[in-house]
Design a protein around this nucleic acid. Sequence first.
DNA 1: GGGGTGACGCGTC
DNA 2: CGACGCGCCACCC
Length: 111
Amino acid sequence: MKQEKSTFELIYEVVKQIPKGYVATYGQVASLAGSRRWSRVVGYALHANPDPEHIPCHRVVNRFGEVSRAFAFGGENRQVELLEAEGVEFIDGKVKLEKFQWKRVTLEMME
DNA sequence: GGGGTGACGCGTC
DNA sequence: CGACGCGCCACCC
């Protein structure tokens, strides 16, 4: 029997692919995982986060580059510190998506 | 099976 | 990116 990858699985796969020093938005992950409409599911999937060691949920932010408020597995500020440690710059508590958003910058770099 | 919830996105005001 | 509402999907009880 083929075990179809559940939506969560797909989402986790995408999140794991986020390179260090970059971040992706929920919509970005949802879109790569399948459908942009899964944005909510993405949040839920990360909430479940069965494998935080390989799932850098801290690299996932909303479309404004702002970290989730419900983030509390060590403090909301914790996520910001982790990203800064990877080289991601923040402005007013928000990450510079135009410079650190995964893929978006990658594509521009290849230009 | 039904109902409520949620780490969101987007359109609209 | 101020606030409000709807939609969309998956999970838990």
